[in-house]
Amino acid sequence: MRVYIGCGGYSNDDWTAPGLIYEGVKKDHFLETYAGHFDAVELNSSFYAIPGLKAFEGMARKSGGRTRFAVKLNKAFTHDRAPTDADFDRMLQSPEPLREAGLMGPYLAQFPYSFHRTAENRRYLQVLTERFAGHELAVELRHASWDKPEVREGMGEYGLIWVSPDYPPLGGMPEPQVHVTGDVAYLRLHGRNKGTWWEGGSAAERHDYLYSRAEMDEWAEKIALVADDLSELYVFFQNTTKGHALKNIPMLREALNARGVPVRTPEPLAEGAAQDGRLL
């Protein structure tokens, strides 16, 4: 199993703080610096506006061929749920530079908690699946009504990747388990900040959580149990606030390696590349 570990987004201004990876780094060089530390990234900007071909060409170039991109579907697909044919065309065609460079990971459909398991929503998900046929599509379903073996069995039949989440223990959401619906698995670690998950005024507040080493060991154990069933695993830390993810990723790497799950750490950037920042 090849393990890819990264963060939800790479344009995190929090990381310019002293001792973090963007200290002294200009914003234009964030991605180059990021790629020196992590071999995967979840692209958030596409949720708000679908980038064009040139933007994706720039990402492929700046990452130096070192980082896999999971591309989040635009909100038209998951929150408005009224995508036009033009939306589908742009969402499918624009990331072509990543595919040509061998850097394209799965698409991510991040549905809101309000997306319950109803007949209407099941039909919508089937339509979305058909339109993205031939592409890896990971689906995050935040309402507990979807957290059933028969749902995952159906997703496996349609080639969908179940997103295994880690949420605050508040109830009403899927349990923190690694579930496998194919040979690729996808894990999103949101943090466990119970006080801000529903009440937080921003994503930064909701994800303001630093995992303990014991919690990272817990996830490493769960991953090790399914390692033989997978060819690839993507793990994305959403707790980027205050650089929490930068502290947790080395913990998870160590915990996985200790359990016989090999995790690659990116090689140092070539001399002269943008590498002003440090991991910690």
Score class of each variant (00 low, 15 high):
residue 157 E to R: 11
residue 157 E to L: 09
residue 158 Y to Q: 11
residue 159 G to V: 07
residue 159 G to H: 04
residue 160 L to R: 01
residue 161 I to P: 00
residue 161 I to W: 01
residue 163 V to S: 01
residue 164 S to G: 06
residue 164 S to F: 00
residue 165 P to W: 01
residue 165 P to T: 04
residue 165 P to S: 05
residue 165 P to C: 09
residue 167 Y to E: 00
residue 168 P to D: 10
residue 168 P to I: 10
residue 170 L to T: 12
residue 170 L to D: 07
residue 171 G to N: 11
residue 171 G to P: 07
residue 171 G to Y: 04
residue 172 G to T: 10
residue 172 G to L: 09
residue 172 G to W: 10
residue 172 G to C: 11
residue 173 M to R: 15
residue 174 P to A: 06
residue 176 P to M: 11
residue 176 P to F: 07
residue 176 P to V: 07
residue 177 Q to Y: 05
residue 177 Q to T: 12
residue 178 V to W: 01
residue 179 H to F: 05
residue 180 V to G: 08
residue 181 T to P: 07
residue 181 T to F: 06
residue 181 T to L: 06
residue 182 G to M: 11
residue 183 D to M: 06
residue 183 D to Y: 10
residue 184 V to W: 03
residue 184 V to E: 03
residue 184 V to F: 06
residue 184 V to S: 02
residue 186 Y to L: 06
residue 186 Y to E: 04
residue 187 L to I: 14
residue 190 H to V: 01
residue 191 G to R: 01
residue 191 G to H: 00
residue 191 G to N: 02
residue 191 G to M: 01
residue 193 N to H: 13
residue 194 K to Y: 06
residue 194 K to E: 15
residue 195 G to Y: 14
residue 195 G to L: 13
residue 196 T to A: 15
residue 198 W to T: 10
residue 198 W to A: 05
residue 199 E to K: 15
residue 199 E to F: 08
residue 200 G to M: 00
residue 200 G to F: 00
residue 202 S to I: 11
residue 202 S to R: 04
residue 203 A to Q: 13
residue 204 A to L: 10
residue 205 E to R: 15
residue 206 R to F: 07
residue 208 D to C: 14
residue 211 Y to V: 05
residue 212 S to N: 12
residue 212 S to Q: 11
residue 212 S to R: 14
residue 214 A to V: 09
residue 214 A to N: 11
residue 214 A to L: 09
residue 215 E to M: 14
residue 216 M to A: 05
